[in-house]
Amino acid sequence: MKTKQFDIKKFLMNYALYVIMILMIIVIACISPKFLSLRVLRDILMQSSTRILVALGCMFIIVCGSADLSGGRVVGLAAVVAGSFAQQAAYYNKFWPGVGELPIIVPILIGVTVGGLFGVVSGFTVAKLKVPAFLATLGTQMIAYGVNCLYFNKAPNNSQPLGGYTESFSKLGTGSILGIPYLVIIALGMGVVIWLFQTKTCLGKQIFAVGGNPEAAKVSGINVFKTLMITFTVAGALYGLAGCLEAARTGSASSSYGLSYELDAIASCIVGGCSAGGGVGSVPGVIIGVLVFNVINYGLTFIGLSSYWQYVVKGAIIIIAVALDVRKYANKN
């Protein structure tokens, strides 16, 4: 009897959010059975795709025992920069009038590079200059936003939302193979790559070690500086990629893109089982975390509720997740 009770508690502690998500899906489907359709699944996955990339980047940093507030604004900057190089040659309101039509890989590489550079700056500030990560990345967040506004306001664009993307770039955001959108393939593909990196490579495991106990990691011969630099750079590159895809998905870009995506990402990571203290986190968990929030966003709008309910439900879920996280550690100690 006693053992059984313990098991239920443990089960709820580990899987409460999945239970809540499944309950929500059941409730929404009862209100409107159309919710259980392929179209809805496809929409939710598609809306989650860019968020998954941001959350995966964020996961690296949280696992490493650090924090990153720059994600959203770096997504915004990468979206604008990538978008500015993805316009048709003949588009009348071209960002770079002299530049012809570029192959799709160019804007993506530029976007990823911009994101990566911001990761390098954040990483250096945290790892070398020893600035607390919250403040260092608050700084890079502001710089990213400022740079974005300056770039976006450059003549002849003068802060007009971007448009007129090349066909291949638009296809990236809207097209699909066998009914599976490219965006979803990219996001899940990156998830697999990162999962392999995290669980099968030495460096991946070092990141966990640094997050779990930096002192112990240092003593056991891990180069903490290098590990932090790589973590932040990879995260930045993922934000950059997310920015490119966000531009392609929405068919535009402006300096307001990516606002508060980093907080959504942190929330998804925590809900997905990353420990706010570092050293714990997995790719499948984070992806589920992102899906939980997108099911809420989509589902509540789907049944015609006001957007404010999304905040109430999301807030409640964050509280439950963090409360459970704290309890897990209380048990361990």
Binding site: S32, K34, F35, S37, R39, V40, D43, Q47, P161, E246, R249, T250, S252, S254, S256, Y257, L259, N297, Y298, G299, L300, T301, F302, I303, G304, L305, S306, S307, Y308, W309
Partner: peptide, 26 residues
């Protein structure tokens, strides 16, 4: 009025997501 108050904060991505969800139902 179809759907609830959709507060999209003047943002393109949010509006796109909200309308996609509404279209799936209505």
């Amino acid at each position: 009025q179809v759907g609830g108050d959709l507060v999209c904060e003047y943002a393109r991505a949010k509006a796109q997501e909200s309308v996609a969800a509404l279209l799936a139902n209505y």
